[in-house]
Amino acid sequence: MVRAVLCGYYGLGNAGDEALLATLLQMLPSSVEPLVLSANPTQTQNLHRVAACDRWNPATVLQALQASQVFIWGGGSLMQDVSSAASPVYYGGLMGLARALGLKTIAWAQGVGPLQRSWTRWLTHQALKTCSEISVRDGRSAHLLQSWNLKCTLAPDPVWALDSLPVGDLWQLPAPRVAVALRPHPQLTAKRLESLSKALVDFQKATETCLLLLPFQPEADEPIAQTIQSQLPGPSVILKPNSPAQLKGVFRGVEMTLAMRFHGLIMAAAEGCRCFALSYDPKVSALMTELGLPGWELADLPSDSSEITRVWLEHYANGDPLSSDQIQSQRDRALMHQDVLIRALAT
């Protein structure tokens, strides 16, 4: 049995990152015993049924690494310096320590960057060049690694391949249903949120839909969901499923999804739901381009809420989800991340 330390943005209440961990655990060979570095080990143990330890406790982390043979960066935009320059230091430092202790290192399903500082670019390059295998989830990351002469596997985000579970209570809610997944961001100004809220009110009046408000990171997103819900004239619910698999399963029973959240769009598209994107980040914009999703950059959001409503109604009436062939293609290609794990762990 091989013991592997899994490191990512785990135990911090972000459903997208928990979905990445769930997919990584789903893809790991049965010969691997995982140990997750988590900000909330008890929660991680209960949610994923896996051993976990405190990511903030240096002694515990060192002990975990010393007792393991493999170290895996477990997906997402870990090496970026836009939200915080501390992120590359933490993750890059752990990668360096793992290599110094003789562990095999794997960078799995990474979104590398943006890296605005020269020293974070250097640190990222140093961390990645020692990896046995690297997989990335977007072309921009692959291009950056190619400029560093580093080989990598490019495949869609692994959450495309996450097995979903049905949410029984969902069918008790009125149909048709539309999901909304917004998050706080400097570009989501009070004025823009007001426009979106008014557009949702008018959209609901016109369609008589039940709105499912999905806070992917409840601590951050739920206040926005509550603000919107307080204004809605029709049925709505703030929904917080118990697991990433159930969260993905929510979109089986949804006609359309309006989302800022990257993994909200992926989960919805993967379950055959029509999607409309509101982009705050290059990764969301790239996903819109790749899949041909309609949407706006937040900076370009119409100031007239009636125009927002008009476009949403048009997509609700006439828009199409991805075809079954497109969904299967994304899922099949996402499984290339599993091939990376199998290949790295077999040598």
Rank of each mutant, 00 (worst) to 15 (best):
Ala19Tyr: 03
Leu20Val: 04
Gln26Ala: 10
Leu28His: 10
Pro29His: 11
Ser30Met: 05
Leu35Pro: 01
Leu35Phe: 06
Leu37Arg: 08
Ala39Ser: 09
Thr42Gly: 08
Thr44Met: 06
Trp56Met: 05
Trp56Leu: 13
Thr60Lys: 13
Ser87Trp: 12
Leu94Ala: 04
Ala98Gln: 05
Leu103Cys: 05
Trp119Ala: 11
Arg121Tyr: 03
Thr124Val: 09
Gln126Leu: 11
Ser135Gly: 09
Arg137Ala: 05
Leu144Cys: 01
Leu145Pro: 02
Lys151Ile: 02
Cys152Leu: 09
Ala155Val: 08
Pro156Phe: 09
Val159Ser: 05
Val159His: 08
Trp160Cys: 02
Ala161Tyr: 11
Leu165Thr: 14
Gly168Arg: 14
Pro176Tyr: 12
Val178Glu: 03
Ala181Lys: 01
Pro184Ser: 10
Pro186Asn: 13
Phe203Gln: 00
Leu213Lys: 03
Gln217Leu: 10
Pro223Leu: 09
Leu232Ile: 13
Leu232Glu: 09
Pro235Ile: 01
Ser236Lys: 01
Asn242Leu: 12
Leu247Lys: 07
Lys248Arg: 14
Lys248Gln: 12
Lys248Cys: 09
Gly253Phe: 01
Met256Lys: 01
Phe262Asn: 06
His263Ala: 10
Cys275Ile: 09
Leu278Val: 10
Val284Gly: 09
Pro294Ile: 00
Trp296Lys: 02
Leu301Ala: 00
Pro302Gln: 00
Ser305Leu: 03
Thr309Gln: 13
Thr309Cys: 10
Gln326Pro: 03
Gln330Tyr: 15
Asp332Cys: 11
Leu335Pro: 01
Asp339Pro: 00
Ala346Asp: 09
